[in-house]
C-alpha cells in the first residue's frame, strides 16, 4: 500500500499523545465509528434528495425545490420534521420487539462499513474475512424487518416482514455464489485484497477480467437490489399491496431510522458492487482514490435509482422462482466455469 491506512495513522497520532494498550484502540475506533456514522448520515441525506430529484426529473417534475438551491437540504428538514412527530404506538404491539427493530435495522446497515474501503487505506479495519463479514452483517436487516413485522401486530406488516425474510434469504444464495467467483480469483476474502487484485488497467477489473464477468456482475447486482429491498424487488413494503409493509405502524423517528437504513443499504450494495467488480478505488490519473470510489459508487446508485422508477414490481412467487430457478443455476454454473478457467489459467493478469 502506498498510503498508510487511516486506522494506523490515527493510532500513531493518538499514540504520540501517550495513549497505549486497550484504551488507545477503544478511542481510535470510537473516533472512526463516529466519523463513519457522520459520513453515512450525510450520504443518506444526500441519497434521499438525489433519488427524489432523479425521480422527479424522470417524471418531468422538479422534485424538491423549496429548501435551498433545488431543495438541497429538503431531507434535513424532513428529518427534523420526523424528529418532532409524535411517536404513535400501537397498543397491541410487542413492546420490546417493536422498539428494537429500527435500531437493529440501523445497526445492520452501519456495521457493514467497517470493512468497506472508501479509498486507498481509508478503511476502518481490514478484516481477513471482509466479504464474509459483510454478507453476515447485512443479513441482520432481515431480522430487523421480521421483528418490525411481528412486533407491529398488523397483518400487512407481518406479510411484509415474512416476504422480506423469504426474499433476502433466497437472494443470499446467488449473491454469495456471485461473490465466490470474485473470491476465487482474488484468492482472499479481504476487501482490500480484492480491490488490490484489480489494480492497474481497467481491464483488470473483475467485471472484465473474470470469465463471464458481466454475468457475475449482473447476477450480483440483481441479488443486491433484492437485498436492498428496492423495486422491482421491494415486496417487503409493496405500497400498492401491503400499504407500507413492515413499517406500516412506525411513525416519527422510528420510521426515519428505517428510511435511513434503507438508503444506507442502497449505498452499501453499490459500494460492494464497486469493490467486487469495478476495481474499488482504482482509477487512473492523479484523482484521489476516494473520489474514484465515490464516482463509481454513485454511478451504480444512479443506475439503481433509474431501475426503481422504471420497472414494475415482481410478485412474491415469481421473485422466489427467479431466485431459485434462474439466478442460482446461473451463478453456480458460473462458479464451475470460473473454477475451470482458473485451473487452466485461461485469464489475463495485467
Amino acid at each position: 500500500m502506498i498510503a498508510i491506512g487511516i486506522t494506523v495513522a490515527l493510532t500513531e497520532l493518538l499514540g504520540s499523545f501517550g495513549l497505549s494498550g486497550g484504551l488507545l484502540s477503544v478511542i481510535t475506533y470510537t473516533i472512526l465509528a463516529a466519523g463513519t456514522f457522520g459520513l453515512l448520515s450525510v450520504l443518506a441525506l444526500f441519497l434521499v434528495w438525489w433519488e427524489r430529484k432523479v425521480a422527479g426529473h424522470m417524471q418531468q417534475r422538479f422534485g424538491p425545490m423549496r429548501n435551498g438551491w433545488h431543495g438541497w437540504y429538503q431531507t434535513l428538514m424532513d428529518g427534523l420534521k420526523l424528529l418532532q412527530k409524535e411517536d404513535i404506538l400501537v397498543a397491541t404491539r410487542d413492546k420490546v420487539v417493536f422498539f428494537w427493530a429500527p435500531v437493529m435495522c440501523c445497526i445492520a446497515a452501519f456495521a457493514a462499513y467497517i470493512v468497506i474501503p472508501f479509498g486507498d487505506g481509508l478503511i476502518v479495519a481490514d478484516l481477513n474475512i471482509g466479504v464474509l463479514y459483510i454478507m453476515a452483517i447485512t443479513t441482520f436487516t432481515v431480522i430487523a424487518l421480521l421483528m418490525a413485522g411481528w412486533g407491529s401486530n398488523n397483518k400487512y406488516a407481518l406479510l411484509g416482514g415474512m416476504r422480506s425474510a423469504a426474499q433476502v434469504v433466497s437472494y443470499e444464495v446467488p449473491m454469495v455464489a456471485s461473490i465466490l467467483v470474485v473470491v476465487l480469483y482474488a484468492g482472499s476474502l479481504s476487501t482490500v485484497d480484492i480491490v488490490n487484485s484489480q489494480s492497474g488497467n481497467f481491464l483488470n477489473w473483475n467485471i472484465f477480467r473474470l470469465p463471464f464477468g458481466p454475468i457475475a456482475f449482473i447476477t450480483f447486482l440483481i441479488a443486491a437490489v433484492a437485498e436492498a429491498n428496492r423495486t422491482p424487488f421491494d415486496l417487503a413494503e409493496a405500497e400498492q399491496e401491503l400499504v407500507a409493509g413492515f413499517n406500516i405502524e412506525y411513525s416519527g423517528m422510528k420510521f426515519a431510522m428505517f428510511f435511513l437504513a434503507e438508503f444506507i443499504n442502497l449505498f452499501t450494495v453499490s459500494a460492494i458492487t464497486v469493490i467486487l467488480f469495478l476495481g474499488g478505488w482504482h482509477g487512473f490519473a492523479f484523482i484521489p482514490t476516494f473520489v474514484w470510489f465515490f464516482m463509481k459508487t454513485f454511478a451504480i446508485v444512479f443506475l439503481l435509482i433509474m431501475v426503481r422508477w422504471t420497472y414494475p414490481r415482481m410478485r412474491v412467487d415469481q421473485l422466489m422462482e427467479f431466485a431459485w430457478k434462474v439466478l442460482v443455476p446461473i451463478t453456480f454454473l458460473n462458479i464451475i466455469v470460473a473454477a475451470i478457467f482458473k485451473h487452466f489459467g485461461w485469464y489475463w493478469e495485467l
Binding site: 432523479v54 422527479g56 426529473h57 424522470m58 417524471q59 418531468q60 417534475r61 422538479f62 425545490m65 433509474m306 431501475v307 422508477w309 422504471t310 420497472y311
Partner: peptide, 18 residues
C-alpha cells in the same frame, strides 16, 4: 430499452409549475 425511455425523460424540461 425501458431504462432508455425513462432516461430520455431525464433530460427533458419539467412540465409542472412552481
Amino acid at each position: 430499452k425501458g431504462l432508455g425511455i425513462t432516461g430520455k425523460h431525464l433530460g427533458m424540461h419539467a412540465v409542472t409549475l412552481q
